[in-house]
Write a protein that binds this DNA or RNA. Structure first.
Lengths: 141, 141
DNA sequence: AAAAGTTAGTTGCATTTTGCAAGCACAACC
DNA sequence: GGTTGTGCTTGCAAAATGCAACTAACTTTT
């Protein structure tokens, strides 16, 4: 169990939002959960246009909260590899439910077809892939 | 389906975070989902210390996004009643998964016992209560 | 019916967070 | 050894947030 400073109330959701309640953190988690992207540069160019200082700050916050791990990249001195911890992997159900809710609620938004199909038709397989750190979406690096 | 301006990418999660990705919005949804609190003053004193201007702003944003409705309070001229829309009610699975994740991940945080027990032992009943707008937690008003 | 209290805000201002551009140290490549 | 790629940090402007004071409309009290 990660130790975090309890600021506002003991409520689980209130404290979770202290870590993940902003416009960027869950997008980082999304990429680490469902794609093969795991480097600073990958996350930087994920499509929403996060800037380097914010990405740097969020990676550090997520690491402090025990959601992600940072390790040396194999075979490249300066690169690092960012991975979800076991706790971070367990955010999958939340992300999936939230993604489906957004699709059902807002016009013109979408989840990648591969993720959506599994979320609707074979939730167990999707969760198993995530738990095994097997990317659902393979993106060019 | 609510029309929202698509700002960063077509990703469902990215757009959902434009509406709900901050430290307060989901706390408002939490209160409306699980308690009998539905007035401005109730939400103001929910325990985390939101200020009136932020609460006012968030209620308007959630209303614009089609997550909540505002109506005249029966039998009190100045009061209003805030309620989740049908779309808003469907946030329950996301909130439940997120709450359970926070409980399992962070030391010293908790969900109200009544909600936690149902979430773990009888998820269907919990979802049915929420869908029927039946408060799981009755708080003094 | 005047006075006092509630309710749901708005306004003004100080503080904090964010966004953007530039710069920088180190590693790898050629 | 010069150039490119990577993962940052710094400086500064803009936006969001937090706090306190104020207000308009309605209710209750006297």
């Amino acid at each position: 169990m990660a130790q975090i400073p309890i600021k506002r109330s003991p409520c689980a959701i209130a404290n979770g939002l202290e870590i993940l309640g902003d416009r960027w953190s869950l997008l980082i988690v999304r990429d680490l959960l469902f794609t093969n992207r795991c480097e600073f540069g990958h996350l930087l160019h994920a499509g929403e246009g996060i800037s380097t200082n914010i990405l740097s700050d969020r990676l550090e916050r997520l690491q402090t909260a025990g959601v992600i791990d940072k390790s040396q990249h194999p075979s490249h001195g300066k690169k690092y590899r960012y991975q979800l911890t076991e706790a971070g992997l367990k955010l999958a159900p939340t992300l999936i439910e939230f993604g489906l809710w957004c699709c059902a609620t807002f016009d013109g938004v979408r989840m990648p077809a591969a993720v959506y199909d599994l979320a609707v038709n074979n939730r167990e397989k999707l969760l198993a892939m995530v738990a095994a750190r097997q990317p659902v979406i393979e993106l060019p690096l």
